[in-house]
């Protein structure tokens, strides 16, 4: 199995194009299917979930990583270190 994976990694370019073709395929598929019972307005727009996902995904990465950079991220010994400061 490791060999197969190694082979695939060596041909990452081909995989990339297969992946893009798959994305296109999902959009084409979304054109063809029947929409029976829409739960809300988004369900009747073709390709809604593609846009929702792409923007949601990028937004989430930027927001979470950004928040982590400016505020949340601390050295891994954050709590231990403070403790030892207090002990003196």
């Amino acid at each position: 199995m490791a060999k197969v994976l190694g082979y695939l990694q060596a041909h990452a370019n081909v995989l990339k194009w297969i992946f893009f073709a798959f994305l296109l395929g999902t959009l084409v598929f979304d054109f063809m299917i029947e929409r029976h019972h829409a739960h809300f307005w988004g369900d009747s727009i073709i390709g809604f979930w593609s846009l929702f996902t792409l923007f949601g995904c990028l937004g989430m990465i930027v927001f979470c990583k950004g928040l982590s950079h400016v505020w949340l991220a601390q050295p891994e010994d954050f709590y231990d270190r403070e403790d030892s400061d207090n002990v003196e």
Binding site: F29, D30, W49, S50, C57, K65, L72, P75
Partner: peptide
């Protein structure tokens, strides 16, 4: 399929930005 595919695209675009740092979060 759209949700999975385009999440993959999002990761592909941002893979460097997602690189793990040796940090822990509050």
């Amino acid at each position: 399929l759209q949700i999975l595919g385009f999440t993959g695209l999002g990761f592909y675009l941002m893979v460097n930005y997602l690189h793990p740092d040796p940090k822990s979060n509050l």
